[in-house]
Amino acid sequence: MATTKYMENTSNPLSPEANDEVLIAQFKAGRTEAFDFLYQRHLPSVYKRVRYVVPENDVEDVTQEIFIAAIKSLSSFRGDSQFSTWLRTLTNHKVAEFYRKRTRKQEPLLAALSEANATMTGNTSKNMEERVYLQRALQDLPENYREVLLLRFAEDLQFNEIAQLTNQNLEATKSLFRRAVAALRAHLDK
């Protein structure tokens, strides 16, 4: 099993400067410590994205689940897309799963709000409520709208970088961004 193999370490150190493809190839060849470098390289973007859309208390837990899922399925990663893109998709799935699980247990907004009220008072509680409300609104947006907002606000990518990443021209990216903000506004006004 991939996770078992991951716990074993081999003796020769790998180069942390190696690119993703090399590290993935090393991981597949049994050099499971290559994943440590992939983790350290990609944790910042995963963490920032998760923290933007998931309540504070659950950020590390969801982040761990993303990387555990990555380890388990990395052996089947074929390199059709960049590893960062693949990981971003995995992150979105895990965040959606987090909200699905929450919905099954109890109404998600109420659950998060009661957590906020239990731990905070006054203005802080109000800020937490607003935060949870916005996070839920973002989660309810169509995927392409949510994605462009997360790339700009959570990952702090410039519009030209987003355009490059999504294979669109700059005009189309900015247009998508405006429609995404309008959709979010409409959602918040409901």
Binding site: Y47, K48, N127, E130, L134, Q135, A154, L184
Partner: peptide, 11 residues
Amino acid sequence: LKTTLPSTNAP
């Protein structure tokens, strides 16, 4: 969005 969900520093 900027006020409520400020961008986070990476760990």
